[in-house]
Design a binder for these strands. Structure first.
Lengths: 146, 146
DNA sequence: CTTTACGTTGACGTTAACGTCAAGTAATAC
DNA sequence: GTATTACTTGACGTTAACGTCAACGTAAAG
């Protein structure tokens, strides 16, 4: 090893393990550039030990949310507002009801997507049935006169 | 009206209604540019009457699939291969089993997305519960000493 | 016959989400 | 010491999915 690993001891007090950018990139199967890009967009905010980045538990949680958001096709900007929602302080009732509104918006979006997916899956099943019927048909009359 | 509407009679024989680009763009709430872009990528292939584009039933079906694909966050290239799958001639058994493979790939992808969505919805519900608890708490102890 | 409304083809511009160098620093390995 | 290895900050390049002109064609309306 060339540099002291950021991963110190097997979980100290509550959970203060840390990770280097290489470990993060590796684990999440993304590039350093991507990790830094997410930081530029304020999606994650790693600690700085001098100039070098140190990633905490929180950063990993956020990365999981980010990547899932990406798999679902959300733009990074939107992902940011969503995951920030989970983190923002919500001491005031006004803030809380704002958050509750946002939650309902999000739910609507997700449910719509789920419907789209289920429709797509149904069509796929239907299409598969047709294909299989065709295939059985072909097996019955092996080849037409060439 | 300045130009003869492409929409002729209320469904002639089987279904030979046609539409202009303006009608298509309008109905699907997209721009002319977008419609032409999809054509450039071979996602739709409208008829040509001289230089002008005439859209048929088939184009509308495809547009619906395209837009759903987009809502689900698929890239246009991928969308093309998918909707072409539904259209390709599949006379040979080899082609059919290829298609059946593709179907399974697609299904896997869609099911994964569905899981992601359901996870996200669960987290959202959980988060909403916490927010609502907080809100009830706030109503009990209206404001802390300023 | 000119205007107008709708259509067409380029072709360059833009935004998001990174990729890809280049050049420098800093700790460890020898 | 010097060489590696990991990390850093620019900064320009790239791809997808259109946006946005500009310049032109054409049919119907006056």
């Amino acid at each position: 090893m060339t540099r002291a690993p950021a991963t110190n001891g097997p979980s100290t007090a509550s959970d203060s393990r840390t990770w280097t950018i290489a470990q993060i990139a590796d684990e999440f199967a993304i590039t350093h550039r991507t990790v830094r890009h997410y930081e530029e967009l304020d999606l994650i905010t790693p600690e700085r030990r001098g100039t070098v980045r140190i990633y905490h538990r929180r950063d990993r949680t956020r990365l999981n949310l980010i990547l899932r958001g990406k798999r679902l096709g959300f733009p990074l900007e939107e992902i940011r507002t969503i995951i920030n929602l989970y983190d923002e302080p919500r001491g005031q009732a006004s803030q809380l009801s704002y958050v509750l509104d946002q939650i309902n918006d999000r739910r609507g979006d997700l449910e719509r997507r789920r419907r789209d997916i289920e429709d797509a899956l149904k069509e796929l099943d239907e299409f598969e049935r047709r294909c299989k019927t065709d295939l059985r048909q072909l097996r019955r009359e092996p080849q037409s006169p060439t």
